[in-house]
Each structure stands twice: as C-alpha cells, then as structure tokens.
Computed example of a mutant assay.
Amino acid sequence: MAPAGAVSAFSTILTARLSWAAAMGILALAILVGAVAAPARAQGTGQSVYVASGIPVEVTGDAATLRDQAVIKAQRDGLRQVLKEIAPADQVEGLLLPSDDEIGSWVTDLAIDEEKIAATRYIGRYTIRFAAAPVQEFLSREGIAFAETRARQMLMLPVYTDEAGTTGLWGPTNAWARSWAQPQNLNSALVPVVTPRGDLDDQNILTATDALAGAQAKLQFMAERYQAGDVVVAEAQMSAPGADGNRSLALDVTRYGQDGIQRYQDTLTGAGGDPDGLLAQGVATVQQMLEGAWKVANLVDPNKRTRIAVHVPLTSLQQWVAIKQRLAQVNLVKTVDLKQLARSGAELEIGYAGDEAQFIRALAVADLFLVSSGEGMSTLTMGGAGANP
C-alpha cells in the first residue's frame, strides 16, 4: 500500500482528472495507481523459470551434518540447473559459481521432496526456488544472455507408429503417449506441456490422421479445450530390432503456434530389448528441441533496456486491475510508470528488457497484446476471460 501522503496526493490529482473516481472509490483507485509503478512479481508463471525441481543429492559423512551438506549441495546443483535452463548451456558450463553462502542467500524457498538417512549416508531429492534478481545480476555481470519468459503451456499430441506399422493417437497401445504422461516430463522450466486425457470427447474431436495432416481448426479446438497456447504434434515411429540387435525411433515433430509452423526431426538408436528406454530418450529429445528453439528466440541481452509509451483502453476498474496483475507476471517488464488514468483508459510508460519481438511474445504469454498505434504510441489490450469483465 502506498504511504498516506502519497494516497492523499494521488487522490487530489485523480479528483481533478477522473469523473468516475468518486463513484468507484478514490482511495481504492489511488492505491492501484501507486501499485502500478513497481508491480510485484507473482509467484508462479512469472518466477517459475527460477525453480529447480527434482534435484538429486547423495552425500556421505558425519551423521550430524549430513542434511546440512545435502542442502548446500542441492542449492549449488539447483542453481547450475536453473542457469543451464535459461542460458546457453555451453556458456554456463564453465562458470565459476558464487560461494555457498551467497548462493544460499539467493534461495527463497526449499522443499525436501524425499529423503533417506542412514548412519553415514544421505539420499534426497529437492525443489529449490531462487530469487530472480540475483540470478539475473550474476548472468549480467558475466555478459551472458538469458531467457526468462516461460512459454504458455503447449498441448502435446503424441502420435505413435509401432514396429508393425500401426499408427494411433489414443488408447492403451500408444506407448509413446504413456512415456509423455510421466509427471517429470510435463514441468519444463521454459516450455511446460500438457497431454490430453484421451477421453471420448478427445477421440471424437481429433484422429491421428487429423493430427498428422495438421488439421488446424481441430488442433485449435483442442488447444482451447486444454487452455494451451501452441500445439505440438510429435510423431514417433519405432522400428523392429535390426541384425545388430538395435532398433531406431524416428521423430517428426511439428509445432503450430503464434510464430507460425516449426518442424524438427531426428532419429535415435537404442537396444532392441528396451523400447521403453528408447521412448524415454525420445521424450527428452523432443523436450530439448522445443526448449532449445524457445530459448534461442527469447534470449535477452541483459544490458539492453527499452522504454515505450502505451495506451491501455479501459471499460471498468476491474479490467484495469486485471491488466496490472498480468503485467506483474511478465518478467521482461522492469518498470511501469503511470502517466495518466482516465475513464476511457490509462497512459503508461513501460520499461522492458530484450527486443520488441521478445517483449510482444512475453506479453502474449500473459494474454496481453501490443500493437503500434502510430506516432510512437502503442496500444495494449487484454485477451482471455478478463477482456470484458
């Protein structure tokens, strides 16, 4: 909440400028104005790229200090994982990390997912959330670009062709879909995915033939059904074991999204007696394809900042609150200065990191849409359920 003096000053200004302020409550509106200047970052969408999940730890030594040792190791390994996920892995690999104490000061939340303690041995798995600012500052000092925009969840449609040549999308014979359904495969730092339930409604909407043909009206309907952004059709074709005892898995992945259609292909080889292992390798490969493409498109120069004048048309106070909340979810937004608030809309100056295309893409993830309205001004509108409250 803004200080009392600030509220009074804002109230005076707003009373002069806004005919609707008295009806809606000057005090509530003044608080909103003060809050916009420094939007709080919501935990969740905006910060989730700075979370390391499922960090395995194994240490040995004195039983009295085993857990302390494990926490220190988990924090260091977790930071390394976050850095690899948001920055180019080859640039992060050789980085000298800060001291254990400094890394510990960056941690905002730590959860022990599982642990086993013996006399001299500790095995555990941790989830660690880091504050965004020190991680960003560390990479900036090293001159390393990083991606901090998390994609809107993508709908994954796994189409499987088995070694007999049978192709399917739904049903228990789709071993490829079972591999994707594992929880650890769905919560990527940058590119989260969701898989369909495969119920009768899904089966009536879309067939494997539709998916492979790119039937975009049906794919879009499925995306809306699962509240997803892009749709990914991932076809996997499993071969029979060859003379050398190995089998291959051919991957043909098509991503349908706001940036157009992108296609990725690869062929993997594995032991003929372990098709499930080869499918798991296929899942990891597709994840790397999607995450790599998203990361490259969203790498931000840490030293580049831009300011833009923005008009926000408004129809209600509730809409203004919703837009403010969504702006707070966009990591690329660094500052929001309110220049004027009127019944018909707000005039903002937004400072953001990265280039214009990256900024527009990051806004779209939060269902905010920016278009140029000429003369150095852009218009920001809101999509989704909050567009017309």
Rank of each mutant, 00 (worst) to 15 (best):
S99T: 15
A37S: 15
L327E: 06
Q340L: 14
K324W: 05
M1P: 09
A328F: 07
F146S: 11
W176I: 10
T254A: 06
N204H: 11
M24I: 13
G354A: 04
G143V: 08
V193A: 06
A362Q: 06
P134N: 09
T306S: 13
F359T: 04
P313N: 02
D210C: 04
G270L: 08
S48V: 10
S99M: 11
P3C: 11
R17V: 12
G376H: 03
D276Q: 15
G46D: 08
V107P: 06
I205P: 02
A118E: 13
F138S: 05
D101P: 01
Y126S: 00
A322E: 14
W20I: 11
G5K: 12
V233C: 03
Q288W: 03
S19P: 02
D276F: 09
G273R: 09
G384A: 07
M238G: 00
Q216W: 11
D77K: 04
G61S: 05
V51E: 10
A111L: 08
G242T: 02
T45D: 15
E291Y: 03
A240N: 07
L96N: 14
T379N: 01
L338C: 02
E163G: 10
Q318S: 11
A40G: 12
R17A: 13
E375W: 07
W106F: 13
A366Y: 01
L32I: 05
I350S: 04
K295T: 10
N388R: 13
Q81G: 01
L96H: 13
V365R: 06
R263V: 08
A145Q: 10
L29P: 02
L278G: 08
P39I: 07
N174L: 10
R141G: 14
Q287N: 10
